[in-house]
């Protein structure tokens, strides 16, 4: 068997013009160009995209699940960041 496994790439697809690229999955490929080719075959067989990004998985830095509380809990108490926090009288009309 081959000594070297092809590196892993994360694949992002823009579904339609005007939308963000979205993570759709990952695949193995020897280099970026082949990763794009493989992504075309694996993730867009039914016209799912108009643009592809590939990123070496090893290059992605992720937040640790254990830090979830420290990172995201502070937003919980800040309800005033949402428009629904504010009562605007009906007479004012749509705002």
């Amino acid at each position: 068997m081959s000594k070297k496994e092809w590196p892993l790439w994360e694949v992002f697809i823009r579904g339609q013009h005007g939308l963000n690229h979205r993570h759709v999955g990952s695949l193995h490929a020897p280099d970026a160009e082949m990763a794009i080719n493989h992504a075309r075959d694996v993730y867009t067989r039914r016209k799912e995209g108009v643009s592809i990004w590939v990123v070496p998985s090893a290059q992605i830095t992720a937040s640790a699940p254990s830090e979830k509380g420290a990172l995201f809990d502070p937003a919980e108490s800040k309800v005033y960041r949402h428009p629904t926090f504010y009562d605007i009288p009906d007479e004012v009309g749509h705002m």
Partner: peptide, 8 residues
């Protein structure tokens, strides 16, 4: 597979 790796 090895050829593609070597090329990369």
């Amino acid at each position: 597979r090895d050829g593609l790796t070597a090329y990369a």
